[in-house]
């Protein structure tokens, strides 16, 4: 079975470490906040200028001056800090954020990522995505392995305009966890019940498959 969105978030959460500063993109990445392992402290960075983002406010706590990068009302945890957009992107561009999780349309064997623009469709903008991929060292891309029509999103070369060049090393799809090195995808783990053959079939870029590909495990 392909992973659900919640299972993808759970798998990404296994990459968290105590004391990590983490930036989560919109969509599946946001769900990672629900699966912080017990006893672990993680601080979320929101690129509009908040380090230590908390949960959504109660009705009484709603404050128009307190929002996240998705423009949603939020709270700050004890120990949070608030700063300007340039301080925020100093953290991102300066490589101070420990883990960045974001979605994509396509990735390729050279670590290129396309996530912001589909020619012919209205382009709303890249927001902070280009800064995040260019500045961070530890990035996990979360995406479905193939489109609804079965076309692979793990390619020999991205077909869409790039968000960043040569910056992605880890990809979690609904079928597998892969790493990118030496111009190839390397299959590391597969979703429970998903065959290696299916992953091979749905990976258009060159794929290195080891003799044994462990299945991911999830606690109920």
């Amino acid at each position: 079975m392909a992973l659900t969105r919640e299972q993808m978030a759970q798998r990404v959460a296994k990459e968290l470490k105590d004391g990590y500063y983490v930036n989560l993109g919109i969509g599946i990445p946001t769900l990672v906040a629900n699966y912080i392992p017990e006893g672990m402290s993680v601080m979320f960075q929101s690129e509009n200028g908040l380090l230590g983002m908390g949960q959504f406010p109660t009705e009484d706590e709603v404050d128009a001056d307190m929002i996240n990068a998705g423009k949603q009302t939020v709270t700050a945890i004890p120990g949070a800090s608030i700063f300007s957009s340039s301080d925020s992107f100093d953290m991102i561009r300066g490589g101070h954020v420990d883990l960045t999780v974001l979605g994509a349309f396509e990735v390729d064997v050279n670590g290129n990522i396309a996530s912001w623009m589909i020619p012919g469709k209205l382009v709303k903008g890249m927001g902070g995505a280009m800064d995040l991929v260019a500045g961070a060292d530890n990035i996990i891309v979360t995406m479905t392995h193939a489109s609804k029509h079965g076309e692979s999103k793990l390619l020999p070369q991205c077909s869409l305009p790039l968000t960043g060049a040569g910056c992605i090393k880890k990809v979690l799809t609904d079928l597998a966890y892969l790493e990118i090195a030496d111009g190839k995808f390397h299959l590391k783990e597969r979703a429970p019940g998903v065959s290696v053959e299916e992953i091979i079939e749905k990976t258009a870029g060159e794929l290195v498959v080891p003799d044994v590909v462990p299945e991911m495990t999830f606690s109920a």
Binding site: F56, P57, T58, E59, A64, T73
Partner: peptide
């Protein structure tokens, strides 16, 4: 006015 774009709340 301070209009809110995405009002998101949690239950108490």
């Amino acid at each position: 006015e301070k209009r809110i774009e995405q009002r998101t709340v949690r239950a108490k």
